[in-house]
Nucleic acid binder design. Structure first.
Lengths: 212, 212
DNA sequence: TACTGTGAAGAACTTCACAGCA
DNA sequence: TGCTGTGAAGTTCTTCACAGTA
């Protein structure tokens, strides 16, 4: 299949969320126009995004809500449960593990690691915090699909290297530093500082934030 | 000034972080090549991004680390303190308020709101959780620069509308729903579900996650 | 008739390649 | 000589516009 751009993939996630909303509202059919208005994009964009994967609509009618939901879930690989491990038992990690959207969408946190002995052994929901030095032994015994890095920038590369050696192919990185990794490993970066600074830039350049 | 793309702005944040790193390492001068390698981009991209704002380098030499840091901080509007309010005193909100990178970079959380009476009055660090119905009175008395929405999708639009009426021009939204807002208001969306689903898509489409 | 699916046009972004300067 | 700054070329992404069909 042709290479799909990251923006398309991210929009597909959005359509999925909107479809679930339309479903709750009792709609059985939806047009590219309705998806576009609700999702702040254009009908052409919606149709183009979907067309990369096939023809899911009916001309003159639109898309069947349930059918399109299923197909998108399939395209996104969301019809299975993913085993997730969290590295770093700090505040961000804690908030993430407790986040319901996580498990609701099939992402199950099966283990938490930290190198701080005072945290090791703590019980988090149903999982116990383990020593990060046991990573190799544990992940070899019970492989995981996705690793979440909620650790300081200074140790992120080292941990990522170890995860890559263990065969992990998908990583969600909260450490504010660019990480090197083989091209068959996907690393998604989430960086709060970048989001805030983007807002700072917007305030700075569109209007003096103190001028109102 | 010409319109700068969001990708450029996000990369500028990255350069800033790298410059601080180079500074800690004692480097006084840096080339577009070094920034590119460390930031996983290209030298041409670095130079082009910077060139939108001026000529900060010396031909044959590179960029002065301290000088470029200053100029970038200025471009990004990071030479001032921003007053931030957090709406939603749940887990995400709690993790955010405690996040040090926040205050270190000049983003000061000055108030927290919730509509849950059992949370109102709680002390969070130095701020007390307030009733969200006091939003109008409080923000009129003491305006803020940035609002962070850590609330359910179902109430996010309503709260945003109230914030817009109060003159807030920058919002960081953690609610997993597209929000409508005037074009002079900047809304940055952070959506954990999208990040995880992007990883799911990558696992699904590059290699069967169970095949290793 | 109403809306999809899609080539083709247009816009935005990235990379190239080289002139110009310390 | 070495590296920046920048038009021009190349590539990717978005929008247009219309043929096709339920």
């Amino acid at each position: 299949m042709r290479k799909i751009s990251e923006s398309t993939v991210r929009r597909l996630c959005g359509y999925l969320r909107l479809l679930e909303e339309f479903q709750r509202l009792g709609k059985t059919t939806v047009s590219s126009d309705e998806l576009a208005v609700r999702g702040h994009t254009t009908p052409a964009q919606v149709r183009k995004d979907l067309s990369f994967f096939g023809s899911f609509g009916k001309r003159g009618l639109g898309y069947d809500v349930l059918d399109l939901t299923d197909r998108l879930r399939d395209i996104m690989g969301l019809n299975k449960t993913y085993r997730v491990t969290l590295i770093g038992a700090g505040k961000i990690g804690s908030a993430l593990v407790q986040y319901r959207g996580f498990s609701e969408r099939g992402f199950e946190v099966v283990s938490v690691y930290d190198n701080d002995e005072s945290k090791v052994g703590d019980s988090w929901d149903s999982v116990t915090v383990r020593q990060v030095r046991d990573l190799e032994a544990d992940l070899t015994a019970e492989p995981i699909h996705i690793a979440v890095l909620a650790i300081p920038a200074s140790v992120a590369q080292e941990i990522l290297d170890r995860l890559v050696k263990l065969g992990v192919k998908a990583v969600l990185n909260f450490a504010p530093t660019p990480l090197s990794h083989p091209s068959d490993v996907t690393v998604q970066n989430v960086n709060m500082a970048v989001e805030l600074e983007t807002l700072s830039y917007a305030l700075r350049n569109c209007r003096d934030p103190d001028s109102r």
